[in-house]
Amino acid sequence: MAYSDKVVDHYNNPRNVGTLDKSSAEVGTGLVGAPECGDVMRLQIRVNPETQVIEEAKFKTFGCGSAIASSSLATEWIKGRTVEDALEIKNTDIVKELSLPPVKIHCSVLAEDAIRAAIGDWKKKNGVAETATAEAKA
């Protein structure tokens, strides 16, 4: 199976690889795994407490090229967005952008899960209830 050019690009030059301070209140950490292939992905965000904008995003993924590319792309996309905005990113957007084949769709699901997990962790740390923000939005 051939990877698309975009996957190869992200794989060779992954953006935002690294670690943020897990103990910081401004940092949310999401650690997720794909049972299909045994991949693990850690995605971290640093959120500005005033504006709720994700100012920094880092990831570390152990897995196939598609999993690395999906998480690399995810960090690029969420940077500069507000937390609520970042939750709008769907795995299908990642599939489209990277032209992932059907057998690799779970990599994009993993990236979406990682975003949600990181944001969920940040909300928990900062006492932001999931339902409260959903209501505020509606």
Binding site: P35, E36, V103
Partner: peptide
Amino acid sequence: EEHSGKDRKDPSRVPADLLEEVF
């Protein structure tokens, strides 16, 4: 690998206790 990830929302599918160690 055929698994498209649709029922991944079921948390029992992911061995969470292993994740930290695996990482």
